[in-house]
Simulated assay, not measured.
Amino acid sequence: MSEPHIETPEELDRANERPVDEPAPSGSAPESRPTPEAAGDVLLEMDDVTLRFGGVVALDGVSFALRKGEIFGLIGPNGAGKTTCFNAMTGVYRPTSGAIRFQGQSIVGKKKHEITRSGIGRTFQNVRLFPEMTALENVMVGADAHFKTSVLGALFRLPRFWREEREGREKSLELLRFVGIEHRAGEVSRNLSYGEQRRLEIARALATNPTLLCLDEPAAGFNPAEKEDLLNLIRKIRDTGVTVLLIEHDMRLVMGVTDRIVVLEFGKKIAEGTPAEVRENPAVIAAYLGVPTDAA
């Protein structure tokens, strides 16, 4: 099997500037989680976060909070700062100022793998798979995030290595079944259809055992039936106890699946509320139509 190309953070950041695609559900659920004891408890907080690149302000004093067990939408026109917000949460960028707290603990300055281990998983606008690895192997890469085998243990194939390898394989097959592509487990990922690749990426993110799953443009390029399947899959994920943060341009999907929504424009938060409240907000209408607020 040829060595997969692992992209640099710079390549990854550039790739995040355009969208991708996603899946349909089926099969049994991933590792079961208890229902949040206090539904509505704050899981993640963005507190007055500003991010500058030279003279460009990508995020400008953004604040909002995600509650445990909800599906939360982050929307806005192109260039509004949505993916930048994801990147700040997941350690790709460090905020210029402000605080980001996950389960009450600051995650500003933590490395990406530390944030993943703390319980935040994500997908990307562009499919980020290892093309020469099988679907099963790709998901097992995600499961590796919590393995405790040392380098020497892996080198000498000690008992813990074999136990974790077996558990990782079983968990990965379960997740492939959950997203509906278990029958493609042995196929190299570059041979999968676009929608299957998006399902595979979600399965790999779930393999990191997240408390919060961030989905970046999962429905781009999908037809109406595929979007309906995606909507059902997002609900299934939430039903396992995973909180979902969703960036999406398809307003019908967003309004149909989210509990609350934050709207960004030019790096600033311009609205927050339920789907019904956001739909009727003049500032949101103006941002999407490109007209002055009073005209909207």
Rank of each mutant, 00 (worst) to 15 (best):
S2T: 13
S2W: 07
P9N: 04
L12I: 13
D13H: 05
R18Q: 14
P19G: 13
V20Y: 00
P23D: 07
P25V: 05
G27Q: 08
P30M: 06
E31N: 15
A38I: 15
A39E: 15
F53E: 05
G55D: 13
G55Q: 12
G61Q: 10
A65V: 05
R67L: 07
N78I: 04
N78T: 06
A80L: 11
G81M: 02
T83L: 09
T83M: 01
N87Q: 06
A88H: 02
P95C: 07
S97R: 10
A99Y: 04
I100G: 01
F102P: 09
G104M: 12
V108Y: 08
K111T: 11
T116G: 08
R117V: 05
G119H: 08
R122Y: 09
T123D: 12
T134S: 11
A135M: 12
N138K: 02
V141M: 15
G142Q: 04
H146K: 14
T149D: 00
G153V: 06
L158P: 09
E167N: 14
G168R: 01
G168E: 11
G168L: 09
E170K: 14
L173E: 12
V179P: 05
R184F: 01
E187R: 12
L192C: 05
R199S: 15
L200W: 02
L200C: 09
E201C: 05
I202K: 03
T208I: 11
C214S: 07
E217Q: 13
P218A: 12
L233G: 06
L233P: 03
R235Y: 06
T240R: 15
V242E: 02
E248H: 03
M255K: 12
G256P: 08
L264P: 09
L264H: 02
K269W: 01
A271G: 06
G273A: 04
E277F: 00
A286I: 02
G290M: 10
